[in-house]
Design a binder for these strands. Structure first.
Lengths: 195, 195, 195, 195
DNA sequence: CATGAATGAGATTTCATTCAT
DNA sequence: AATGAATGAAATCTCATTCAT
């Protein structure tokens, strides 16, 4: 029990170290040696918890994606209606990304990295199922456009990554007004237009 | 003349080789040795054309971004009206990305890479000026939402990257219908909603 | 303990290998690959003990300089008088250089190399403090000329390097008579001339 | 004639460029490419004038050594007596080294470099024959110690290199007084001591 | 479970030299 | 005579991973 406890701590220290290092210098900048040093363990120890660097990064990806989804769906109450619920999710996601910038940037970096394997990507996508359910519901109510969930995601959620990217590079800072505008654009893009 | 000609060819061969290698294995997977071999030159030769790997990648970035913009604005005729012009640009961009998948994927990878320096990024952005001009015009005509160009880009253009990403991973293939839907979402997100 | 022991041995093996290689082919001839091979380790291993080639050479410089000074001042007994003490030091230095020709040649090479940084040079100079102290004493007793220590060093000690250089190139071999002559010249150059 | 003229100019430009580059960064810092660029020729052209880098450096060594000797023996008038003549030579050498610091430093660097081959070294030494002749004369007159010319050189001339080295590193700057002291030491070391 | 030491393979880059013109 | 282009070889250094303890 004590050992297991300790192990979990160490595992998380390793994940945290990786996250931090990926943030400065990209995935390739997070060398196993640096990860080990930042987590105060031996490089060899990493391999007791993870099979390889790829495994380490993939597990971190799942960890962060799950945390992100947990934050997004914290108060998931679809019974309040599609618009309200989507708005809550959207702002929860934005809040998470603004608060946990390292995590957000890490997820962005993973989007285009060959380090994340397809299976992990799929598993990460599953964490967003509640959102897809909501959209399904919205489509049944003729509130959400009858598009594939990927398309809805591309317009409803994905643009946030670009905005965060700009924000972190000091361009186009995000304040409440801009966030409100962004949400407006997101909603307009996926909602059924009234005639 | 003959020498210069040959130089240009070699330079382009190097850029092509880089593009191709970045596509399989990411930027770090495109080692100078591999680039050299694929372009059928010695590693040392690369340094006659580019100062460093960073320079090579940045110049490739500019090259591709310019080609992309050229394709996008090929028949740029703002006098036809904002909607028509935007639609033409949008579909030209999509067509380019569908036709030149390696280029499209490369640009995506550069978005989050520390390899591209800020100056190059800014220069790349300039290639999209006609689009920003169009939006300005649209805002004057109260057709386009009064948002910052970055926000408009995040919703009007950026989602394409996600869709191409999916497409190239075999998910959610893009056909004419889906493209039409995607454009609809893009336009809805940036246009001024009618009451 | 065993591990630490082994480390020290390997560190010294690396220093010895470097010393030997610098002797044939100069500092640039001592490539990290050759050093590694001669010390029977992987090139990567060198970097566990030294930060860089510069660090390796600088540490070797300090090592050798210290050993040289230790030999020079082994029986340092200034109470025997300035002349006697200087003579003992001088011959101890000569003996060291004759016995450890690689070390002597290495120190000579370092004199003009940009590889040795100023801080290391200064630290190496400190090892000769007893000699400078002796000269100070000699100056107080009006036995040694009232010159700056650098000047005294230039004439009292530095010429040895030239003689060793010749010796190792097979020119002007050093025997006891020549050494005695050399010492005579050294002493005449720094001592106060009697009228 | 015109071609030959031009050739000589180019050859000297190459030697000058090498000298300048060796001064910043040592012999290995003077890459053939840099030498070519600084002399405004193609790298290939260097090989029309010199067989190899080694040849280039060796010829430069001879050039500089000769210039140095020319300066040293400009007013060589042994009939004025050994002391006077040696003093003139000594100060002429010092003046040369102070005026042409790049040349002086280059000669110092060559002393310990494996780049200079033995034959060249010997040839360079010949340039100093007048000095050796003077010493011979001095020995016949019982003014100069009966030591081998190498030993006399080690004490009479070689220390200058150390002093210049210090000077150029900003330590122990040389003014007229220090020079006078240095000469005093030099002379005391090689002259026959009076009883 | 944990580690410090070690490493083979490979990364980027430089260099003296040659070749085609 | 002169060159710009090209290069094989080698330089320094890094990295993910393993091994002996």
């Amino acid at each position: 029990m004590a050992l297991l406890q300790k192990s979990i701590e160490k595992r998380e220290a390793l994940l945290r170290a990786t996250l931090s290092l990926v943030n400065n210098g990209g995935i390739q900048g997070a060398s196993m040696a640096k990860v080990a040093k930042l987590a105060s363990v031996s490089p060899a120890t990493i391999y007791l918890y993870f099979e390889s660097k790829q495994d380490l990064v993939n597990q971190l990806y799942l960890n962060v994606k799950t945390a992100f989804a947990n934050a997004a769906f914290k108060n998931y109450t679809p019974e309040e209606g599609v618009y309200i619920t989507f708005k809550k999710i959207w702002f929860a996601m934005a809040a998470y990304k603004l608060k946990y910038k390292e995590e957000a940037s890490f997820l962005s970096q993973c989007d285009n990295s060959p380090m994340i394997d397809e299976a992990t990507r799929q598993e990460g996508l599953k964490a967003l199922d509640p959102l897809f359910d909501l959209w399904l519901m919205g489509q049944e109510q003729a509130v959400i456009k009858n598009f594939s969930p990927y398309l809805l995601y591309a317009y409803g959620i994905y643009p946030m990554a670009f905005l965060m990217n700009m924000e972190s590079r000091g361009i186009n800072p995000l304040n409440d007004d801009v966030l409100e505008e962004a949400f407006q654009a997101a909603w307009d893009s996926i909602r059924v237009s009234k005639l």
